[in-house]
Structure formats: structure tokens, C-alpha cells
Design a protein around this nucleic acid. Sequence first.
DNA 1: ACCATGTATCCTGTATACAGTATTAAGCAG
DNA 2: CTGCTTAATACTGTATACAGGATACATGGT
Lengths: 225, 225
Amino acid sequence: MFKKAPQARPRLAADVYDQLLSAVVNGQIKPGERLIQEKIAAQINISRTPVREALLRLEQEGVLEQTGRRGFTIRDITDQEIRALYGAREAVEGYAAYVIATDRGDQQLATIEQAVLAEQQLFERDVEKEFTINRNIHRTIVEQSGNSVLLGMFDSLWSRGVSLWLFSATRNDQTPSKPDVHSKLLQKLKSGTPEEAQKEMIDHIRDGLDMHLENKKTHASNPDS
Amino acid sequence: MFKKAPQARPRLAADVYDQLLSAVVNGQIKPGERLIQEKIAAQINISRTPVREALLRLEQEGVLEQTGRRGFTIRDITDQEIRALYGAREAVEGYAAYVIATDRGDQQLATIEQAVLAEQQLFERDVEKEFTINRNIHRTIVEQSGNSVLLGMFDSLWSRGVSLWLFSATRNDQTPSKPDVHSKLLQKLKSGTPEEAQKEMIDHIRDGLDMHLENKKTHASNPDS
DNA sequence: ACCATGTATCCTGTATACAGTATTAAGCAG
DNA sequence: CTGCTTAATACTGTATACAGGATACATGGT
């Protein structure tokens, strides 16, 4: 009669995880700051156990790191690691583009197109929205490649870089031809060779890296808004 | 005078993690079997806490899954997921090949060559050794691409498939031209275009998938040794 | 003022205790 | 014997308690 409850009963640890992650995204926890299990637990009035679980998970995902017995801190990411993250994105997203340009399913292409169109319908300047939409375009492409493992990697990569991507977006004062870029990418997916599609994606990501490093350098000595 | 202790004080949870993982690899825990925190804890005479930590980590890595309140079990992997895993390998390792064939550092190529040579010096038939050597060849290639994030993904993928790869190797009664295959791959890394190197890697992995599925089908109704 | 040594505290890792729900087993009606 | 209702058990998730080692602070000697 009624479907049986789809399990997934609420897990306190999951809440903590979300809260912490979004705190990192919003910059409420700047890098270097110490995260103490007891204090976090006290702040949200729960025990240390679920807090600990969330912290460990974030550590394993590369967002936090543990420094001896001084607690967890946000990993401050070196330039080398930034490059590595972008490189990994090239691998994952480039391959996804390759696969899509090989299969060419109508449904898949339509779904991607929709994500791309959303970007063009955004006129106001809202950094966070831009970020979300951009991320969604890339994620949709990976998703539509039909490989769930790849999608998991994508999510892992992006959550690992949360503080980074947003930072980059924030600083990127003018994004002139961005919609065009994604349209071009879509075009390659639709009618280019798989190799072309992959290359287009890789180049696009590499541009992002350049812009990222550029912004970082510019604002390096002027970290406040 | 004395070197300072390299921190990393022993973590009980890490032990449990290793034990469980290798138990999966050795097939001591076949898929479907239930893993109960209390029982495991009792068996190695520790409390549930570190056991739980290890289990959660293995779950996040995709080795285990949680089924309601009936404990953890080894994920039985569907054919679709096998394909997804191999696809992800194509993305990661193919990209690594591309990068290496672009940079062409002497040191890197030499390191890879060494790994390949190790395979040709193995004459006896030792399934586990073959597996280790093969894995090492692929891992070295990713490692030498110089991208630590990519390497992390590689490790994650392979540990996720541990039970699979070994299964496949076990069943693969004759591996005739395998050394040749890797030599050819090395050749492309040394002197092919990046695209060629990538393609060679992808084809190689795809062959592995075909073989895997073939073996699986053959032995499907005869699961015991 | 500076360095060394001892002491207090902080913080984690592990163990144990408690609460609650899914799953299984038991009992009973048809 | 089959199907339903109710009780028992089996697990997990969360909370609390304990132990030990690192870090930070204070005290005293030079």
C-alpha cells in the first residue's frame, strides 16, 4: 500500500558535516583556524562523537588536515595543489566530454543544453549564483556521461576546492565572454569529434586555472574585501 | 642529534582498516556477508569505536555499504559499476599518459621503464605477484605524471575494486602477451604523440574490461575455486 | 632578559553506557 | 500450515567517561 520508508534516517553527523562544509565555503572558518571537537560539539549542543565523525570525513576528503594533537585545521592549499586539482578536473571532465561526444544521446545533450541556457538567463551580478550555475554545467556534463564513479570523483574534487573556486569567482571582477565559452563547448559536444570535445573542455579548464592564479596574485597582498 | 619522532602515533582504527581491507582482498569476507561492529570489536579485543571508524571509512570509499540496521556488507558490484570503474580508470590513467607523453622527463620515463621491466623478469606463475606488478606499472605512470590528486584518485579506484581486480587476475588462466602490451604502452609514452599515448592506455584498459567480463561470464556458475 | 625544567591544561583516541528502531522470532487466529 | 500481531533481540547512533601524550604556561636559575 504505502511504500516503506526509504531508510535514510537522519544522522546527526551528516548535519555537522554540512554545517562545517558550508562554513568553510562562506569563509566563516578561514584557513589555519583550529577546529576543536569539544567546542564544536558544545556550540551545537551535541556530543563529540558525531562531530568527530564529520571531521574525519572532511579530513579524508582533503578539506581538513590534522596537525598532531592540536586539532583539525583547514588545509591551506599550495599553488602546486591548485594545479593538481585543476589537472584532475581536466582528466575527469575532459574524459566526460569525450564520452558524450562519442555517444551523442539526444536526451543527454538536451539536458546539458538546458544547464548552459540557465547561465545566459542570469543578468544580475550574483557571484554565488554564477558559481552555482557554472558548477552545475560542468557537473551535468559529467553526470550525462553516465558514469557514476566519475561523478563521485567530480563531487569530491569540487568539494575539496570549495573555498578555492568561490574565492576565484569572487575575485573575478568581470566575466565577459563566459556564456560564449560554454556555448562553444556545447557545440563541440554536439558536433565535434570526441578529441575536439575533450580538448575544448581541457582548454576551458586550463583558462580557469590561469584566471585563478592571476586573481590570486593580484589580490595576494590585499586579502580583505 | 636524535631525529624527532615522525609523529603519526599509532591509530587503532588504522589497523582495523587495514585488516578489513586485506580480508576483503583475500576473499575471507565474501560479498553479502554481514559485518557487525560488536563482533569485529570482540574478535580483536578492542572497543567498537575504532571499528566503527574503519567501517565508515570503507563505506565512504565504496568498498562497503550500509543496509539499514543490519550492519555493513561488502558491496556486490554490478556489471554497470564495473564498467564505470574501468571508465574512471580510463579517465585517470589515460590523462596521466597524456601528461607524461607531453612532458617527457627522462627521470619519469626511466622510473616507469623500471616498473615495466619488473614484469618481464617474472617467470613463475604467481597470481598475486602478477597483480601487484601490474598494479605497480599503472600506479607508477600516474605517479610520474606528478599530480598527487590524480594519484589519490587512482588509489581510491583500485582499492574500491580490490576484490574485483584480483578476482579477474585469478581467473585469467593465461596471460599470453601481457609484457608486450606494457612495452608497447611504454613506447608510446616515450615517442608517441600525447594523443596516441592516451589512446594506447585507454585501449589497454578497455581490453582489461573485456577480459574481465569474459572471465566473469565463464566462471559465473562456478563461483568456488 | 633568556633558557631550562617542571607543572598544568588541552585535546585527542579509546572505552563504556544508554536509547531507540529495524529485524527477527514467537504466539495465535484463521 | 499460513498470515497477522506482539514480544524479544540485535544493531546502530549518540552520549559520557577515562587515559595518555602533547602543548603551553609558569617558575627559577644563570
